[in-house]
Design a protein around this nucleic acid. Structure first.
Lengths: 336, 336
DNA sequence: CTGAAAGCGCTAACAA
DNA sequence: TTGTTAGCGCTTTCAG
């Protein structure tokens, strides 16, 4: 059946009544007679009428659309975040526009503009690694649109946040290494300006402190991608004989490290025990399966949307900004 | 700086000129005097004017938005597809609304409605596994909106398609097993109604035929997820002694099969060589690293958008529907 | 119970 | 060179 985008006006004309009556009839306005309602609804059904969301949005000043800016869609953690967001947004009747920053500051700035231009009702954002200036977030706040940070948050901007228990995760992962008798633990860390990375490093340090171990600055290397592990291969192998454990800031780094160590003759976990962070699907498939910190992206996404929609739907009632911390747990596997 | 959503009318009022003059000045209409343009642009800049995309869309009958319906965002292949789509769509000035069907037919139908309601200019879709009725796709075609199928295509609907070279991929993967001397090759297959799965099975059969091997129906098991491998564990292990190779319809299935076989004492590739399909990141990390068919989701996404935008931007000029086949290649690793 | 009219923000044909 | 007006599709106040 043809359905070439009928409007309320078309229906009104066809039925010889006014557009306003059609509008009301379709939404069961009490003023309209049962008979008129029946006729209108029947006809609307027949021609497959569907309200134009664009016109509705313009009228209502509300698009029922959420915007998301995320560093990299192709990254299991982020794609689970998206999945969680999409799930709840859909259930609540919101659409989702997704922008990718590709870890590029400039693109992130443009993306915020694009979302604003499209009058999204709220924005979810996980900050790019190259973002140091947070002015564009402040502009969003100023323009009055609700904003929720996810995982990678801005500390300069006051708004709602949903984060992983990064400190605790790092603490339990490192403590686990210490409990199993490891003493010289290398930390493969993220750049300092990433809040997440800093928290994980603090968790690592705290664990050492709890066990009365003096941290050794040589045992903290900034290295948080598979590629960087290969670039820093020489350095890591040089340190290898002096260590018996590794706490890596994420699973990719952990696995790459395991691989170069194994190629170099180290046994895992006998010589060096390794833990990652994130519980990416690759962790359970790595050899040996990687002990890591489970971090639910899906749950983060859901909770972020929950907060965001609450803000959108209660614009007047002031609620304090909150930071929700999604708990983590240790997945013990054969690498430790 | 405050930027609370200024409209053209606001500017007109503030400057004491008409909205149409403002509109024209902002877009460098030749009729407008240089002086007026300067004043308008300066003011617009100052109050941080941004055109309302909703109003524009309504007026132009064109939203510059693309819709995507995809089975599961959390799946590396699909997330790379999304990434390719997002990349090119963004570059061409289009927004992207993403819907997830979660492999659920009903949700897929509703999603097509949602996208239509939002007046997207075109739709990209990869069909859910549970979709057997294709009426909703026909409705889309009837309503005149360009539609491009991605990877999992409908054969009942005539439109543009971008697909993987599934047959060839299966052919080269199976041939590779045969070349290395394997003769009894198990195929872990997708449900028959999935076109992709059927093509891969045909490629498998063709390879056998090329090598003069009679296909054995017992050596084709319908099993295409990690979970199903575990559910069919008994059956697979029962068959294991009789086979020397496996061609799995995807990498997860291949890896899960390797794992249950290894737990059961089989050596890979010595006893049984295994190939997957897709080159998921886990393939290179599996133990042993999995030989598999490289399939570029990113490239598929890009090409699908390219076709779609061409259709959108040349609605009148009739171009024949095309099916673009994205080539594949074999990634040889230690599992064969 | 129903209709006319205005307006959301923008553009474009037509007038001046 | 600029302004007036109508209209994209819908809702809603006000009138009848």
């Amino acid at each position: 059946m043809k359905s070439n985008l009928i409007s309320i006006n078309d229906i009104a004309r066809a039925l010889g009544i006014s557009p306003s009556t059609v509008s009301r009839a379709l939404k069961d306005h009490p003023d309209i007679s049962t008979e008129t309602k029946r006729i209108v609804k029947e006809y609307a059904e027949q021609v497959n009428y569907r309200p134009n969301a664009l016109a509705l949005s313009l009228k209502r000043q509300r698009s029922n659309t959420l915007g998301l800016i995320i560093p990299e869609i192709t990254h299991h953690f982020f794609s689970s975040v998206i999945s969680g967001i999409e799930e709840l947004a859909y259930a609540k009747g919101y659409r989702l526009i997704i922008c990718q920053s590709n870890e590029d500051y400039n693109r992130e700035v443009i993306n915020t503009q694009v979302l604003l231009d499209n009058r999204v009702d709220g924005i979810l954002i996980s900050i790019s690694k190259t973002t140091h200036d947070h002015g564009h977030f402040k502009d969003l706040i100023d323009s009055g649109i609700p904003l929720v940070f996810l995982d990678r948050v801005s500390e300069e901007v006051e708004t709602d946040r949903v984060v992983t228990a990064d400190f605790e995760g790092a603490l339990i992962a490192t403590s686990h290494l210490l409990e199993t008798g490891r003493k010289r633990i290398l930390h493969l860390a993220s750049p300092k300006h990433l809040h997440v990375g800093r928290l994980r490093q603090e968790g690592y340090l705290k664990a050492l402190q709890n066990y009365g171990i003096e941290p050794d600055p040589d045992l903290i290397i900034q290295c948080d991608t598979r590629l960087e592990v290969y670039q820093l291969k020489e350095e890591i192998l040089r340190i290898a004989p002096k260590i018996d454990g590794i706490f890596a800031v994420n699973d990719f780094t952990a696995i790459a490290a395991m691989q170069i160590l194994q190629e170099n003759g180290s046994r895992i976990p006998e010589d060096i025990a390794v833990t990652g962070f994130g519980n990416d699907p690759i962790a359970s498939i790595a050899y040996p399966p990687l002990t890591t910190v489970e971090q639910s992206g899906f749950e983060m996404g859901r909770q972020a949307v929950e907060i965001l929609i609450k803000r959108i739907e209660n614009p007047s009632t002031f609620i304090d900004f909150q930071t929700r911390v999604i708990p983590v747990s240790l997945e013990k596997r054969a690498s430790t």
